[in-house]
Simulated assay, not measured.
Amino acid sequence: MRAVEKSARTVEEAVALAVEELGVDRERVRVEVLEEGARGFLGIIGGRAARVRVSVEESVCEKAVRLVRDVVDAMELGAEIATREEGDTVYISLEGKNLGVLIGRRGETLNALQYLVNVAVNRNCADRKRVVLDIEGYRKKREETLQRLALRLAEKARRRGRSVVLEPMNPQERRIIHMTLRGRNDIYTFSEGEEPFRKIVIAPKK
């Protein structure tokens, strides 16, 4: 929930200021009047401003976008943010210049930011959703890179007749490798080790 307090000459004016700052429709907000306000003598002397607290219950998508926007603005990066929802998943994509700093080495910064956003937006939330964050199409490019890597190393394992061990990967990237090579009759894959050093092994079938 987001809330702001505003003061103005009348309750209606204070509410209007709060709604404008929150950036939502008037119908979505809850208004608590803290002070009714009063006109002074002759409407000028001794008047008291009206004060209100206006709150709005944000959706998971709205909270996630606000958090991402706060990070982008704090780093003084220009970015366009687009969203879409499919079932219990919220997809947020960023496009702009100089956003590589938010991706990091092999997506480590991007994955860390995505994790933090998921924790923040789902805290004390009954309607939990998974947030997938992408920047300049990085995840699709990374998926294609991993698919090519999987096919190349599978051929290496088959040709040499020995297992090939990949570098440690996060669960999402390991899944891409497994899915790419699933169903083959010449090699098989499995994971070994403990997080965050868990890795995939591509082994030839005997």
Rank of each mutant, 00 (worst) to 15 (best):
Q114A: 10
F190I: 11
R174D: 12
E36F: 01
I177Q: 03
G87W: 15
V121D: 07
R198G: 05
R139Q: 09
R162S: 10
R160W: 10
K6Q: 14
K199S: 07
L116Q: 12
S59Y: 05
E57Q: 11
H178G: 02
K129D: 13
L181V: 09
A74S: 14
L110F: 13
G100H: 06
I135D: 03
T189P: 01
K141I: 12
V54R: 01
V65S: 01
R66Y: 03
S55C: 02
M75Q: 14
S163K: 11
E95M: 06
E86H: 02
F197R: 11
R66D: 09
G87I: 15
G78E: 15
R198P: 06
M169E: 13
R184S: 10
A157V: 13
A8C: 09
A79Y: 02
E20Q: 09
V117F: 01
P196S: 08
A203H: 11
V52H: 02
D25N: 11
T145P: 00
V119K: 03
E85R: 11
T180I: 11
Q114S: 09
V60D: 09
G183I: 11
V11L: 01
T145E: 13
R30T: 15
E62T: 14
A3E: 15
E36H: 07
G96F: 06
G43R: 04
I44D: 06
S55H: 04
T109D: 06
E95V: 12
L22E: 11
L42S: 03
V101A: 06
G47Q: 08
E173S: 00
K6L: 06
E95R: 10
A120G: 07
E35W: 03
V24A: 02
R30L: 03
G47R: 11
L102C: 04
E95W: 03
L22H: 05
S55I: 09
A79I: 09
E192G: 04
K199I: 07
R28K: 13
E27C: 00
L110V: 15
I92D: 05
R48K: 15
M1K: 04
L42T: 12
K140T: 15
E57A: 09
L116W: 12
A38L: 07
R159Q: 13
S191C: 05
L146V: 06
A120V: 12
L146N: 04
V33Y: 01
S59T: 15
G43I: 12
K63F: 08
N111G: 05
R162D: 11
G100Y: 07
E155N: 08
D88E: 14
V60G: 01
A74W: 07
A64V: 08
I45K: 00
G47K: 08
R39E: 14
Q147I: 15
D70E: 15
G23A: 04
E27L: 00
L99K: 05
G78A: 06
V201Q: 02
E195Y: 08
E86I: 10
D70M: 08
G87K: 11
V54F: 01
I202K: 02
A150V: 11
A18R: 01
E173K: 00
F197L: 06
I81L: 06
K97V: 14
V90W: 03
I177W: 05
E20M: 00
N124V: 14
E136M: 07
